[in-house]
Amino acid sequence: MKRWYMLTVVGADRPGIVARLSETLYHGGCNLGEASMARLGGNFSIMLMAQTDTDIEALRLLLAPLARELNLHVHLDRIEAQLHEHVEPNLRITVSGADRAGIVAEVTGALARAGFNILDLYSDVAGTAAKPIYVMIIDGFAPQGAEALEAALAPLRKTGVDLRLTPLDTLIG
């Protein structure tokens, strides 16, 4: 029976990791599902869904030689998963400001208390080493729409964080 696994792979970035990883999985009988790769602080990171009829130990053995050769950390989880179950976001929240500890916790805490469900989050530290700026873009679903969130986020604006709420209405044509 085919089962889904979530693979998390982390290591020093270099060209060719995705190719080697996906070739190994393909030749090992895996079918890939959704995946997301990001280069974070010079590190390679990917999370990907792989479907196979082998058990988790066999999957571990399949990836072990590659992990050793490229010095990658591989983490495997057996997951319950379905494809074709995307949830469409209805709101984008863009956050920026002088970088400091706590911005993500404060913003996402306020969002969670207001019932907002984060579907996608991207953040970066830009600016210069002396004056770093923090930028975060969150797409998600606000059950009560943008107005309800404005009130929840208002106190944060006073702390010097810039917040912009943009309703998303996906055009279907």
């Binding site: 074709h84 995307h86 469409e88 998303l168 209405d169 996906t170 055009l171 279907i172 044509g173």
Partner: peptide, 13 residues
Amino acid sequence: VGREGCLSVPDFT
């Protein structure tokens, strides 16, 4: 920039 989907491309936006 805006978000789009299509009846001819189900489940992708």
